[in-house]
Design a protein around this nucleic acid. Structure first.
Lengths: 109, 109
DNA sequence: TGTATTAATAAGCAAACACTTATATAATAA
DNA sequence: TTATTATATAAGTGTTTGCTTATTAATACA
C-alpha cells in the first residue's frame, strides 16, 4: 500500500458519520433508508457517504429489487484493522432494535 | 474514545505528508529543518503539520537551543495501531543517510 | 551589541469536504 | 399505464484543509 492509498483509506474511515455507518454494518447489512432513520440524516447525505466508502472498497453493495443492501467488505486487506478501530468506539444510540420497536424497521427483502 | 476523538486521530494521520513525517520519526527524532530537507517542503508547511500531529498527541516536542526536536509519542494509547499502519508503508525515498551523504545533516545538538 | 539561524504564527488562497435542495433513474405496485 | 418507492446524481453553499508568502519570536554567534 502506498502513501496515497493509505491516505484515501484513512480519509474514508476518518469521518464520524461514516464511522457510525461502518459500526452499524458490523452488526447488520442495511439499506440507505434504514441509515436515514438510524442516523437522522437525509437520503442524499447517506448515499454520498456510501459512495465514498464504496470507492475505498470498505463496503459492498447488492441490488435487491428497489433496495441496495450495503455490507462490510470482509475481504478488504485492512479489514482486521478496521474492525479493531471500530471496536474502540461506543455503540450508536439508535439501534436496529429501537427501529423495530418504533415500527420503522424497513423490510428490504 | 468517542467518534469525534477518533475522527481527529484519523484525520491527523490521514495525510500523506504527515504519514511521511511519522515514518521518519519511527527511525529518528528530528527537527523541522531536517524535514524540510528530507521532504522538500517549506518550513511553515512542516511546522503546521507538526502542530496538527502535536494536537493529536501523536508527537512530542523538546526545545533544545534554537531547535525543536520532535519525536513519536510512544505513550499514546493508540501507538501500536499507528506503528502497524506505518509499517504497511514503504520507506521514503530520501533518508537521513542520504542527507548525511549530501553533507546536509543538521547537527541539532 | 547587531546579525544570522530556527521555528512559530498570521493572512490569503485554491481545492476538497460535507452537507443542502432539486432532479433523474429504476424498480414495484395500483 | 400511472403512481409510488428507493436510490443516485447534479448543482450550490459554507467550512475545512494544505499550502503559500510575510512576519514575529527566540536563541546563538560575531
Amino acid at each position: 500500500m502506498d502513501y496515497f492509498q493509505m491516505e484515501s483509506y484513512l480519509k474514508a474511515i476518518g469521518d464520524s458519520n461514516r464511522m457510525r455507518i461502518l459500526k452499524y454494518l458490523m452488526k447488520d447489512s442495511l439499506c440507505i433508508c434504514e441509515f436515514t432513520e438510524l442516523m437522522k440524516m437525509t437520503q442524499p447525505a447517506i448515499s454520498q457517504h456510501m459512495k465514498k466508502l464504496k470507492q475505498a472498497e470498505l463496503v459492498l453493495e447488492e441490488k435487491r429489487g428497489r433496495w441496495t443492501i450495503w455490507s462490510l467488505n470482509i475481504r478488504h486487506a485492512q479489514y482486521p484493522i478496521l474492525i479493531h478501530l471500530l471496536s474502540l468506539l461506543p455503540e450508536p444510540e439508535r439501534t436496529i432494535e429501537t427501529l423495530k420497536a418504533e415500527g420503522k424497521k424497513v423490510v428490504c427483502e
